[in-house]
């Protein structure tokens, strides 16, 4: 499982475990599964989807992946 946190300037919107993450990177969607290499990517705007069906609208910021931990740090986020 991946440990995922979705963080906006105002609050932590989500923190928990999920099997996969699909994030809107600057150049298209990126899917993250367990065992992904350590990565930092800039995000564009779009929908962030988790395996359990939850999704968030995000805009800007970045995603950091390291040791099965995914941090989505975005300037604007809301639950979709």
């Amino acid at each position: 499982m991946l440990k995922v946190s979705v963080i906006s300037p105002e609050a932590v919107l989500f923190e928990g475990e999920t099997a996969s993450v699909v994030a809107p990177a600057f150049d298209g969607e990126v899917g993250i599964l367990t065992g992904h290499a350590a990565m930092v990517t800039v995000l564009g705007s779009g929908t962030l989807r988790l395996a359990d069906g939850q999704s968030f609208r995000v805009e800007g910021g970045f995603m950091q992946v390291a040791d099965d931990e995914v941090r989505v740090v975005t300037e604007k986020a809301s639950k979709a």
Binding site: A38, V42, A66
Partner: peptide, 16 residues
């Protein structure tokens, strides 16, 4: 850590 950087360190910094 040694991160893979997309698009590049410079671009990420200029966004952040």
């Amino acid at each position: 850590k040694d991160y893979l950087l997309f698009p590049s360190a410079g671009e990420i910094l200029s966004a952040l």
